[in-house]
Nucleic acid binder design. Structure first.
Length: 426
RNA sequence: GGAGAGGUGGCUGAGUGGUCGAAAGCGCGGGUUUGCUAAACCCGUGACCGGGUAACUGGUCCGCAGGUUCGAAUCCUGUCCUCUCCGCCA
């Protein structure tokens, strides 16, 4: 979330930004309430001061009668303080609700626009778009023919949107994980396998909303746990409530987790096959940085994603995400969209990775700060996240781009040693 | 799941109703000594919210939420977490 003082001092900018992002948040009401809050807080503080004075005076009272009189005074002050405090709490609760609904500010260079139509292509990968001398199949057809994915079994066991990976698809999943992790380790990331569940306050801290009609999150009944939608949640929560020495920054971590998404409200939107599923595996990058370093870290994350997909020999484009499509926490976001020859009528780009600079928006909620030697006080770190590989979507791109006329599929060179074969045929 | 113990500042850890925002040590900042470094010694050093140009000053915070009390780190209740032992188990 944004800093309270920042919102009040820059109300016009914040309102403009909300409009730019299509967020509904009553900023004017927030500013009004903040005035009331300060007034009420002063009242509470003065009452507390009097109560403290009375309490201290009791030890010095010269006789029982005076002691009793002062106690009565103390009792009365306690009641008045409690009443004032409860009014203050009400105001604070309403402010908190508004504050949560206000999205992060937007990078001045981020394209302006209401939705993904306004996303701006900024780069292409090194692999050219593939040419086929036959009509390319889509990944569903390929996967079923090659017995790589069993959608029917997934639906029987867990419902629509679930699937079994089988045979070489399993090897491809493991290979993709290893491929990504190897690069990230060589780049100095600390590899982790994170919990697949997290507490709801960690979800909220990272900007995910665990409950509600439109929620993307599965929650566990009779607990305050949810299934994570990405390891971004657990990696962000890793350092919640901690103060980090500035010289240890930046911290680069990567995490493998399963990702669970309800996809509520997504019916009919490109739901075929592996594109939009309730569960998949992902290797996620995460960084905690100094504020001055986060822009550069975002570019670095984007470069790593490009290296991974260039290395797989997949064509893609990079888009700079428009303000209306940034979501809540991101200040700036780049998506990699891989070419998917079987998508749409003649192939389309489909999102395969996404990397965001969340500046201090998550860190403030999660209370992740840093301290600089020789300086007083602490400041919030910046957090960044980026997909290294989302397995299900990478599989789509591999199957569709590496397909052969006979319906078999070649294994990308970089994965051959990890998969143990060059060609998937049945 | 059962039984115990515990959660205190950046860290370790003392503190069982007022004199406690909290001993001590470490760390950190400054200084003295010093060929450099190290060591030793001295002084200082929590966070957050608010008022003030500033010196300074009010309030809150001892896992979290309630309760008792004029007054709670300290007593009571609930809750979360950690550790030890037992049970169960991949």
């Amino acid at each position: 979330m944004l800093d309270r003082k920042f919102i009040v001092d820059h109300a016009d900018q914040v309102k403009e930004n909300c409009a730019l992002r299509g967020a509904r948040a009553d900023v004017d009401r927030f500013v009004l309430l903040d005035g009331k809050r300060r007034e009420k807080q002063t009242t509470v503080e003065e009452l507390n001061r009097s109560a403290n004075d009375v309490a201290k005076s009791i030890g010095k009272a010269k006789d029982a009668a005076e002691r009793e009189a002062r106690k009565n005074e103390g009792r009365e002050l306690r009641d008045r303080t409690a009443a004032a405090q409860s009014e203050l709490d009400t105001i604070a609760a309403e402010m908190d609700a508004i504050q949560r609904a206000i999205p992060n500010m937007s990078h001045p260079a981020a394209p302006r626009g209401a939705d993904d139509q306004a996303n701006l292509e900024v780069r292409r990968g090194s692999t050219p778009l593939p040419k086929f001398d036959f009509k390319p199949r889509d990944h569903v057809e390929l996967a079923e023919k090659l017995q790589l994915v069993d959608f029917e079994a997934g639906a029987k066991v867990a419902g629509h949107g679930f699937y079994f990976l089988k045979n070489e698809a399993v090897l491809l999943e493991l290979a993709l994980q290893r491929y990504a992790i190897d690069l990230l380790i060589s780049e100095g990331f600390t590899p982790t396998i994170t919990p697949d569940l997290a507490r709801n306050d960690v979800l909220q801290g990272t900007g995910y909303i665990p409950r509600g009609p439109e929620t993307q999150i599965y929650s566990i009944a009779e607990s305050d746990l949810s299934l994570v939608a990405t390891a971004e949640i657990t990696l962000g929560g890793l350092l919640a409530d901690e103060i980090i020495e500035a010289e240890r920054l930046p911290l680069k971590l990567c995490g493998i987790s399963h990702c669970y998404r309800t996809e509520a409200g997504a019916h009919g939107r490109a739901t075929r096959g592996l594109y939009r599923v309730h569960q998949f595996t992902k290797v996620e990058m995460f960084a905690f940085t100094l504020p001055s370093e986060s822009d550069a870290m975002l570019d670095y994350f984007c470069q790593l994603e490009c290296r991974l997909f260039d290395g797989l020999g997949l064509a893609y484009r990079v888009v700079d995400t428009a303000t209306g499509d940034l979501g809540g926490p991101a200040y700036r976001k780049y998506d990699l969209e891989a070419w998917m020859p079987g998508r749409g009528t003649a192939g389309e780009f489909g999102e395969v990775t996404s990397t965001s600079n969340c500046t201090d928006y998550q860190a403030r909620r999660l209370a992740i700060r840093y301290r600089t030697k020789g300086e007083k006080g602490t400041q919030f770190v910046h957090t960044l996240n980026g997909t290294a590989v989302a397995i299900s979507r990478a599989l789509i791109a591999i199957l569709e781009n590496y397909q052969q006329a006979d319906g078999s599929v070649l294994v990308p060179k970089a994965l051959q040693p990890l998969v143990g074969k060059e060609h998937i045929a049945r």
